[in-house]
Design a binder for these strands. Structure first.
Lengths: 288, 288
DNA sequence: GTCAATATGAAATATTAATTCCAATCTACA
DNA sequence: TGTAGATTGGAATTAATATTTCATATTGAC
């Protein structure tokens, strides 16, 4: 018997990587539903490993029979043998997170080559996340959230290396429908923009050593207008700290002279979402 | 009804660690065959997760019914629900094996309050970093670095959620004195900007589901000009993949509907610095 | 050593899940 | 627009797997 023109003695992928490559190779020529389950399989390999044909099919939005056809097109004789590959993949992962991290660090130090650079950044990011999760002060966090949640407009202030964080905050606040203003300097109108801020607003200012003079200057100026400031910075001696109502000290590990920004990002996301949450709570309370 | 003197309303272990403790606690009082399967279970947890009652019983040298009695003595209503605990463990450990991380996640789930949000984002970031460090393909990485290193100008293309990553890449490339152009649309001149790119340049395009149509369109257009593209995206079926010479699939964990971008950031930083490194090497070779 | 209680093995049964089949629906091409 | 071939959905069928049952064996108390 032949399936889809392919004889049964063709090579059946035995390991996950081969299987993955095979799927990607054929994806253009797959029919719609088969492609749908193919995409689901590669995006949710764990679900394939643990689920039943029926449950997987339902999650992927197809019929169980489609799942079996998919397996057969790949040369397996049914869903069950396809599933074996996904299970095998899970069994092979056995090293602990700490061991992996240690290995990464070792590789990054000893090893040349570009993979080592990647490993170095992953290790730096992991370290920074570990540090911040230990050191973050709950009370400060609550205070910052409270302060930002009651602001009419949240101004977000950052330059250079911190700017990506600021742009992410602005994006996330926007998605949460919280009024905000990213202070960036394309037209040199920052001073005017800042001039609009009132004590009923609030500021998130982010700056790391060497502190961008413009950020400091703008923060000072907005502080003098009585606008409360939440600062994210990297030292208690940071010039931002003196202007801020609440400030966070984030120690980012570096690799090859480039500092991670993962911890800052995580803090920024958490602040943003927590502010959204707090506003929802407040909204409910007013209505109820 | 009571089983082995234990009432049914007693606490059934839901996670592997509790289960393990329970087994060790009772092992002295277990009958011979039950003890045998108990020992087997703790020694070969992966087999329990994936096997069938019959296959596990055979490996452990007992009858299937013994396996079920074992499960029932622990308070489960059958082998199937006992197996869930072993599967859950594998799933957890797969995304992150680390106990600290597991603890974080537990806190983030159980606990309300804003600290839980922060813990959730840290956990999501750590998970994503673990995933990418396992899944990144060295050859792809080298290829991307080579491709970008020989570009005259590197165009960086991203919108919305991916924009912070792009802005970071642009900043870092600038610090490394590598000519680059961030394609952003303040003045709606993206098409013109893209028009300047030639096959001697290169592009880093970043987009995640739901893919910003503008990013896709611009990527297509620049690909048609013969400019080689390195894509960072989240699924093998991403529309970006078809235009790219090299592409990376980054699976970011999410928390509360907001996806992490830590893994993407780490990859972006590594790519950038590796390109800088490669250029330095090439420069030395030309001089020496 | 005998009895009662408990534990075990093996087969029967019930349950669940995989697979197949067929009719309905699309799609490509004339 | 009509038609053959491919694709799909959904129910029917078959296979597998978990669970129950019951007869037998083992253990421990008296």
């Amino acid at each position: 018997m032949s399936v889809g023109g392919a004889t049964m003695d063709e090579r059946v992928p035995r390991d996950f990587e081969t299987l993955r490559a095979t799927i990607l190779d054929r994806r253009a020529s797959l029919p719609k539903r088969i492609a749908q389950i193919a995409a689901y399989a590669l995006d949710n390999p764990d679900d394939i490993a643990f689920g039943t044909a029926a449950s997987i099919a339902a999650s992927a939005g197809v019929q169980p029979s489609t799942l079996i056809r998919f397996a057969q097109q790949l040369g397996f004789d049914g869903f069950t043998s396809l599933q074996q590959v996904f299970r095998e993949r899970l069994r092979e992962r056995n090293s602990s997170y700490d061991e992996r991290l240690a290995a990464l660090r070792a590789k990054a130090e000893e090893g040349r080559g570009h993979r080592a650079i990647f490993d170095g950044f992953v290790a730096a990011a992991s370290t920074s996340l570990g540090d911040i999760s230990r050191s973050l002060n709950d009370a400060h966090f609550e205070e910052a959230v409270a302060l930002l949640a009651k602001a009419e407009t949240i101004y977000v202030l950052a330059k250079r290396r911190s700017y990506p964080v600021a742009s992410y905050i602005a994006y996330a606040l926007g998605k949460l429908k919280i009024r905000n203003q990213l202070v960036e300097s394309a037209a040199g109108l920052n001073a005017e923009m800042i001039g609009f801020a009132t004590p009923r607003d609030a500021v998130i200012a982010i700056s790391f050593s060497p502190y961008a003079p413009a950020t400091i200057e703008e923060t000072r100026s907005i502080a003098e207008q009585g606008v409360p400031i939440v600062a994210i910075t990297d030292s208690s001696f940071s010039p931002l700290a003196q202007f801020a109502k609440v400030w966070f000290e984030v120690a980012e590990a570096d690799f090859g002279g480039f500092r991670s920004i993962s911890a800052t990002m995580a803090l920024a996301m958490a602040l943003t979402v927590a502010v959204g949450e707090k506003r929802r709570e407040a909204g409910r309370r007013r209505k109820g």
